[in-house]
Write a protein that binds this DNA or RNA. Structure first.
Length: 549
RNA sequence: GAUCCCGUAGCUCAAUUGGAUAGAGCAACAGCCUUCUAAGCUGUAGGUUCCGCGUUCGAUUCGCGGCGGGAUCACCA
């Protein structure tokens, strides 16, 4: 429809010898302005030397409209041309929802682009805390959106099980181990204070007793044990949220295969790196940074920048055409260095999309929930899931745009009432399911979609609330596409809320189960279409949609 | 001090990526259940979109300058 109109309008512009401009359609906010609007007349007004409404008039006069598609074309406001869909067009289009059902909303906008999505990537030195939830769910939903738009997505988790942090982990466990055995052993200055360290130490005692007491500085057992313990827990937490990574990429492979030294040499050859004070420096100032950055410490160990750069290069080498990273705002400083490094190696950074989300704060009603790391008792993501449930966690973490700080109200999230937006959405789905169950007692097989289509007289779908609802449902594929391409999953929650709202209004105005068999059938079909869209949307959101509440 | 993000109704946030009368949810007030799920619906009230200047037919959106909040500025990741 859009494409057709676009073509026709472009032809008219040419015929009128107006300069050619892109004909773009928007969906007006206000119902009175129709279903599609274009601002071409305003764009042209100046060049043509006429006022926008006159320009619009001249265009509309040439327009041939097919009234099975459009019921009205109007010039409005400063010079908008507004189009209103005919009901028959809306209803006809809506049949696609039934035809495609579980795939309705999928498009090929990504045209099979090989995409690497990296997120979570927490090192196995501890548990995921509640704040990690935002990243976990953002990545999950963005991954789903990319799949729904035809990207070929590899979900990846990058981790480092060597270096400082892991040594600290081992040292922390060892210290707790000795203390649990009754020794007065010092706890490392920057050690991990969480109580899970004590749990790990106790497990080791249960298995090995005090046999590791005099390890003579060798902490490898503790490190390995700690790493495996933490990773197991992290994966379990992710699994509760249905998050599953395809690849766990170990930073160490970058060393063992020589990718790190390769980058250093290449940088030096290009005069992008130099030795000084016993360290190797990256000429970040060449890319506008305020000072150069160390990439290899005087101890010989690289800083995080170097492996990050090598890692991104490997992503390109592995054939990915789109590379998506999700980071919290606390990592913001590292991004320019990595991008500059990758660019210096000859790759186009426009194929790297870095999504930075702002931090999360937790409140419980009026009370601020602290999750200080100094505190031994941290609030973990598991704790949060236990408290509010998987669905609320999934929904709440993506319902705000990534650029804003997210305030997560635990009291609201666990409230099973209309205040809670998750329940509002799920309730709409359950309500429809309930209606469909009633239909089955009327001997209508609502699961046989082909039969539903065949038995429905679509011309009976004509109430305003029904048409409004179908229009809303028909926005779904384009919305999914737009959310995916702009990496803005929160807009999906906004949309689904509107769907639920539009459905409730329809439900309130029109009785579905009624004595007029044909009318009932038509309305059941509308219900089924709505159910399909809500279910598909929920699947993208990783939120369940219950048949009963 | 520098860099990045944010500033919209009492609170939490949207706003189709520059469009028309800035919208939802909570909270407040007033209505609607003998009938498919009231976890719902309808209505009322609530605004100098932080301030100023600019760009243009048109700015919450873009640019510049302030003010306020957050994050980051390691030979930690």
């Amino acid at each position: 429809m859009k494409a057709q109109l676009q073509q026709q309008l472009s032809a008219i512009l040419a015929e009128l010898q107006y300069p050619s401009v892109d004909v773009i359609f928007d969906k007006p906010k206000v119902d009175a302005h129709g279903d599609l609007t274009t601002n071409v007349a305003m764009m042209l007004a100046k060049a043509v030397g006429k006022n926008p409404r006159q320009v619009a008039q001249s265009i509309v006069e040439k327009l041939k409209i097919d009234d099975s598609f459009l019921s009205a074309v109007e010039i409005a406001g400063p010079g908008f041309i507004n189009f209103r869909f005919a009901n028959s067009y809306v209803v006809e289009s809506a049949k696609n929802i039934l035809r495609e059902h579980a795939s309705f909303g999928r498009t090929q906008a990504g045209s099979g682009k090989k995409t690497n999505l990296e997120w979570v990537s927490a090192n196995p030195t501890g548990l995921l805390h509640a704040g990690h939830g935002r990243q976990v769910l953002l990545g999950q939903v963005i991954g789903n959106l990319l799949e729904w738009t035809g990207h070929e997505v590899t979900r990846e988790y990058y981790f480092n099980n060597a270096g400082n942090q892991m040594r600290t982990l081992a040292e922390s466990i060892y210290s707790r181990y000795r203390r649990e055995l009754g020794d007065d052993y010092p706890f490392p200055e920057e050690g991990y204070k969480g109580e899970y360290i004590v749990d790990i130490a106790k497990e080791i005692i249960a298995q090995k007793g005090d046999s590791l007491k005099d390890a003579d500085g060798d902490r490898s057992y503790f490190q390995k044990y700690g790493e495996e313990w933490c990773f197991k827990r992290i994966k379990e937490t992710l699994a509760r949220l249905n998050v599953k990574h395809d690849v766990f990429y170990n930073e160490d492979t970058l060393y063992s295969t020589g990718k790190i030294s390769e980058v250093i040499e290449e940088f030096k050859k290009k005069d992008l790196a130099y030795d000084s004070e016993g360290a190797v420096w990256f000429r970040a100032t060449k890319f506008g940074a305020d000072k150069d950055r160390v990439i290899v410490k005087s101890t010989g160990e690289p800083t995080y920048r170097l492996p990050d750069i090598a890692y991104h290069r490997e992503k390109f080498r592995r054939g990915f055409e789109l590379i998506v990273d999700i980071f919290g705002a606390d990592h913001i400083a590292t991004i320019p260095d990595v991008l500059n490094g990758v660019q210096a190696l000859g790759y186009d950074t426009k194929d790297v999309k870095v999504i930075i989300h702002q931090m999360v704060s937790f409140v419980n009603g009026d009370e601020i929930v602290k999750m200080s790391k100094r505190n031994a008792k941290t609030y973990t993501l598991d704790d949060l899931i236990d408290e509010v449930g998987v669905d609320a966690v999934a929904y709440f973490f993506v319902m705000r745009s990534v650029g804003t700080h997210l305030e997560f109200d635990i009291a609201l999230a666990k409230e099973q009432s209309d205040k809670n937006p998750v329940y509002y959405l799920q309730y709409a789905h359950a309500r429809i399911a309930s209606i469909l169950r009633h239909a089955e007692t009327e001997h209508i097989n609502v699961h046989d979609i082909a039969a539903m289509m065949a038995n429905t007289d679509f011309s009976l779908i004509r109430e305003k609330e029904e048409i409004d609802l179908l229009k809303k449902l028909l926005e779904f594929p384009e919305l999914v596409q737009s959310c995916a391409l702009s990496f803005e999953p929160h807009r999906l929650t906004t949309y689904l809320r509107e769907v639920a709202e539009t459905f409730h209004r329809f439900y309130h105005e029109h009785r579905v189960i009624n004595d007029v068999k044909q009318l009932m059938q038509a309305r059941l079909t509308v219900c089924l279409m709505t159910k399909i869209v809500i279910a598909n949307g929920c699947r993208i959101l990783s939120v369940s949609c219950p048949e009963k509440m």
